[in-house]
Nucleic acid binder design. Sequence first.
DNA 1: CGTGAGCGA
Length: 143
Amino acid sequence: MAMKAATAAISANYQMCRGIRAFCSSSSTFPFNLPKTNIEKPPPAEPSTNLFVSGLSKRTTTEGLRDAFAKFGEVLHARVMTDRVSGYSKGYGFVRYATLQEAEAGIKGMDGQFLDGWVIFAEYARPRPPVPPLNNRPPQGQW
DNA sequence: CGTGAGCGA
C-alpha cells in the first residue's frame, strides 16, 4: 500500500493554513464575514541565529533536520525536540546557524518545503526566559 | 493510535 504519500499530502494540505489562519476559518466558506480576529499573528521575525523549525515529521530526527538545513549554511547545532518520557518526536526542533545570513538563507530555503513528507516551517526562535528548574544543570552558556 | 499546534535540556 502506498498510503504514506497520500497521508503526507493530506498533512501538507492541512498545514497550509498554518500561517494564514485568518483566511482558513473552517466555519466560513469565504472570508466575507470575517470575525473580529481579522488580525493575524505577527511572526516573531527577530533576527537570530537560532531557528525554530516546526512541522517536522514524527520520524524526522536531528540528523535529518541538520542535513536539510546544512544545504543553506553551516549548522552549528540542530536538535529535534523529542519527549523525555515517551521518547517520540514532538514534531519540532531547533537549528542554529553560524551567522544571521545563513539563518536567513536557511529560513527562506526551508520554510514551506517538504521534509520526510511533511511541510516544515522555519523561523527565528525566541529567546527563552530562564532555564528550567533543574538543579543539576550547568547555567546557560553552553551554546 | 504518537492524531499535528507549537518554542528547548
